[in-house]
Design a protein around this nucleic acid. Structure first.
Lengths: 341, 341
DNA sequence: ATTAGCACTCGGAGAGTATGAGTGCTAACA
DNA sequence: TGTTAGCACTCATACTCTCCGAGTGCTAAT
């Protein structure tokens, strides 16, 4: 493809990103040394090739999804971060966060504030992390709390209401059995089979303990479930590129699944995807940028940005990259002092 | 005040609630035996008295806040629930909920779905509940989890990252000290003084344990903090009586405080308040209905509904009352089988 | 005191018009 | 042959104007 045509396409996208309105041939003259007539001819061809489109006959051109794709993949010139910017981004990260989750959340919050978009954190299920503690604690009559902690530092608990109170015997047996057989086991190894095995191992206590075990089992499942957290979702509402009712529906729906779909395969590296590439067009006219972060050498999750297709890629992609790099670094630092996991 | 005038006011409000548009004199004729001219005269007077107002000269009348006040306080005819309705409401309540929180949440969710409004739950801080368990659990290097459970069944935990690892001695000492001196203590008795006392009691361990204690202390504070949960907030966005940007701002702001303000004094009984009565007009044109529920004879929280001023009071107030009654009953039933608290 | 009748008001919908940004095409030019 | 100036054409947007009708207040009759 003609190099001038590419330049024109780039100019159209650049211009469209800042203005949000169809771009005419005259506006392009600032970027490309050619007359408006020439540019018009080229734009007509770019339209035939599917990179641009006209909302109506007498309007300027708007990049199509294919146009954005090309722009992001090869045309765009990423701006690199100034030291000032780096300092600012660093300042927004919560370095005192005591958990990985808090650290990543702070990055997500910062992103959503800086970009006025929604930001998402997908903590990949720490499948490789081990159960470091399981405990059943009686609280009030017939009420029990199951507590589970992993080596990764995740803590979850579940309240369980039984039909009958447990005897001390039962409780002690359960407690010692659980600590002996579950602690040190990778969370993702808790399967239906382990559940069955556990049940039979209870022997005479089986009847009374089964409800507790089943709760314990679902708790373990929740542990391995990939978690997703959205921040700044409200920003999407005020973004005029989106259809408000569509956004409301999106926020209403349980969007975890929806989001997961297009965050999932981003774990290998920075990635930009557009709504036509997301199954079922979750939000029309949107794009998603994701960057993975690592922990102990393995991808531990991803940081994402959900915004309109005309988001300022050149500026925000570096933000995202910087955050994911810093998170990786910080987790590394910490990892050195914790040998388990 | 003239009885016919009251009837007319009632008719205007009734009509306005269903239509959402200014009500003309002709529409009132269906409800009041009088000619449109008579009704017009009366309406003009009601306007002078401040109960009605006209958006513009040639439009019908809209009730003012004062009009709504009078309507809700004395005019309105509450519909009573049919058996079918009761069954439906019962069905929406999660009777298997293992915690009070889950139970009340299910009611709140149901309310927001039925009314297409936002619903709020304010669990009054269970000040009278006791700490039934405090535990410090090591997880990974320098990482500790503080776990606190109250007799009411609330569980909270906090991750704490220390500068140095604790010795077994320190940990054991802390654990036994905490269980001895904190378990059985009402959560709201944990004050700055207890914190100081705790610190000095640590003796030689003080230096190393203080960070943990301070986290423990904030955890206890969080326990007594009144909690508020909003469901169906999105409904407010689609409600055409509200200014969208105002709603977005409201959702953006940390609305707990805002909401608390007008839920707080509702703990004595069912109550309807209007936005002009809420400090700072949190949302223009809104009204809030709240109903308290009890536990062990004491008010334990309130269920609330946030909607437009033209919400269907006659229908929804009974819903709210029914839910709060059922919750009170269910908590009572459970209370009987749990003697503590 | 109530009501029928009437003139008046005013927001909102619809039609017609002007504007101007932007196009495609043609013909001239380097 | 690729580029450009010029021009006629298109069409969304904004604006004005008019009409309509729901609803009012007032007056005079009941």
């Amino acid at each position: 493809m003609d190099s001038r045509k590419l330049k024109i396409l780039q100019a159209v996208v650049d211009e469209y990103i800042v203005s949000g309105e169809p771009v005419g041939s005259k506006a392009i003259m600032k970027h490309v040394k050619a007359s408006s007539a020439t540019i018009r001819n080229e734009m007509a061809e770019l339209e035939k090739q599917g990179y641009l489109e006209q909302p109506h006959t007498s309007a300027g051109r708007v990049p199509t999804y294919t146009g954005f794709r090309l722009y992001v993949d090869t045309l765009m010139e990423r701006s690199s971060l100034s030291d000032d910017e780096k300092r600012m981004l660093d300042g927004m990260l919560d370095r005192n966060a005591s958990t990985e989750e808090e650290l990543v959340s702070s990055a997500s919050l910062a992103l959503s504030q800086l970009t006025k978009c929604a930001s998402v954190v997908a903590s990949s299920a720490p499948k490789f992390s081990l159960i470091s503690k399981v405990e059943v604690i009686p609280t009030g009559k017939r009420m029990y709390v199951i507590l589970m902690i992993t080596s990764g530092g995740t803590i979850k608990n579940k309240v369980c209401r039984l039909e009958f109170d447990l005897t001390n015997d039962q409780l002690q047996f359960l407690d010692s059995y659980l600590s002996e057989h579950l602690e040190g086991v990778p969370v993702d190894e808790i399967s239906d089979e382990t559940f069955e095995k556990l049940k039979t191992a209870m022997g005479a206590y089986m009847m009374s303990l089964t409800p507790l075990l089943s709760e314990l089992f679902t708790l373990a499942k929740e542990m391995t479930a990939q978690d997703i957290k959205l921040s700044g979702a409200k920003n999407l509402l005020t973004c005029k590129d989106f259809d408000q009712t569509e956004i409301i529906n999106f926020l209403d729906s349980d969007n975890r699944r929806e989001i997961m779909r297009f965050v999932d395969d981003s774990f290998s590296g920075l990635q930009v995807t557009f709504s036509p590439e997301h199954d079922g067009f979750v939000i029309h006219n949107s794009s998603v940028i994701t960057a993975p972060f690592k922990k102990g050498g393995r991808t531990a999750g991803a940081l994402g940005l959900i915004g309109p297709m005309r988001i300022d890629y050149a500026k925000f992609i570096p933000y995202l990259e910087y955050f994911s790099q810093r998170i990786t670094d910080l987790l590394e630092e910490r990892g050195e002092t914790e040998e388990d996991e």
